[in-house]
């Protein structure tokens, strides 16, 4: 009565096959990440030293450190965040909490999706035209960061909107039915419970911004500039462009240097992601419903 039939055995075999297939695909996914990290650590590891991180490049960038690029990337990311986070969060709040479901809203949503799909080189040209030339910011941190901000705005909006939508409607209704306005509801209930998702979006933006090359090439990043930026209207070096330059444009760079730059860049990104995950775990631990 309870013995396996031929059909049961076949089912079990197919089941096992698919399980293996999916497991294999998952491993395939992790493999490139592991390989990249492995190669970078092995070949770039020897380049890393205090001197590498905290001194100027010398000898036509074939020796010395990467300090101006490191500092430049931090500048670019911070200014881009200051420009995009308030706008992105406000837009997401409007779309998620206030916007009626009408044609305008749908058009805006479509625009956001399209903005996310625009190639970064097109953003670069837009930034050149709009910020460098039209607004006369010149090639500067400001122009480059604003270009990055426009490019990553959809990330912030989508992440924020999604995290706002994970806050159950029942909480909003409870507030509205006590006479709370939308804003009171947002401030007291929705935002505090969505903040972890919003932070995740912000940090995603940081990792994406710090690695972008094309958008900053024409708008504010310099090929070689051996001093630190003093303000947002200065040009600056940046990690991503520096990596491109010493890998392809400068002769006789010792092999470990570009790997070292890549390792520092990816460590920055991974560190940001790590912080984001830790934050999320911490905030999720506090929220129970």
């Amino acid at each position: 009565m309870f013995e396996a039939t031929a059909q049961n055995r076949r089912n079990r075999k197919v089941e096992g096959l698919f399980r293996l297939l999916f497991l294999w695909m998952t491993c395939m996914l992790i493999l490139p990440v592991a390989l990249i990290l492995g190669v970078l650590i092995v070949r770039g590891g020897p380049a890393i030293s205090w001197e590498f991180l905290f001194t100027q490049p010398i000898n036509n960038m074939t020796a010395g450190g990467i300090l101006p690029a490191l500092v430049g990337t931090v500048w670019l990311v911070v200014v881009a965040l200051i420009a995009s986070v308030p706008v992105g969060v406000a837009a997401a709040l409007y779309l998620s909490e206030y916007a009626p479901d009408n044609r305008l809203t749908r058009a805006i949503n479509l625009a956001i999706i399209n903005l996310a799909g625009v190639p970064s080189i097109v953003h670069a040209l837009f930034g050149l035209g709009a910020f460098v030339i039209f607004f006369r910011f010149g090639t500067s941190i400001l122009a480059a960061s604003l270009t990055l901000a426009v490019m990553t705005l959809p990330v912030v909006i989508v992440a924020t909107r999604e995290s706002l939508q994970t806050v159950p409607l029942a909480f909003r209704e409870a507030c509205w039915n006590m006479g709370a306005t939308r804003w009171q509801t947002i401030r007291k209930i929705v935002l505090p419970n969505a903040i972890s998702g919003i932070l995740t979006g912000v940090i995603l933006e940081v990792s994406r911004t710090s690695g972008e090359t094309a958008p900053i090439m024409f708008t504010g990043a310099a090929f070689f500039l051996p001093f630190l930026p003093q303000g947002v209207l200065d040009q600056t070096m940046a990690m991503s462009l520096h990596l491109f330059v010493i890998s392809t444009q400068v002769p006789d760079v010792p092999e470990h240097m570009p790997f070292g730059v890549a390792l520092v860049l990816i460590s920055m990104v991974l560190a940001m992601n790590g912080i984001s995950i830790a934050f999320r775990v911490y905030l999720r631990g506090r929220k129970k419903w």
């Binding site: 029942a170 909480f171 209704e173 409870a174 507030c175 509205w176 039915n177 006590m178 006479g179 709370a180 306005t181 007291k188 209930i189 505090p192 419970n193 929220k287 129970k288 419903w289």
Partner: peptide, 21 residues
């Protein structure tokens, strides 16, 4: 004014909906 109306008229729902506070 709906805020005043809802102050005067409280509502209790089928599923308890305490706020996450």
């Amino acid at each position: 004014e709906l805020a005043q109306l809802r102050k005067q008229v409280g509502m209790v729902f089928q599923r308890p909906n305490p706020l996450p506070l």
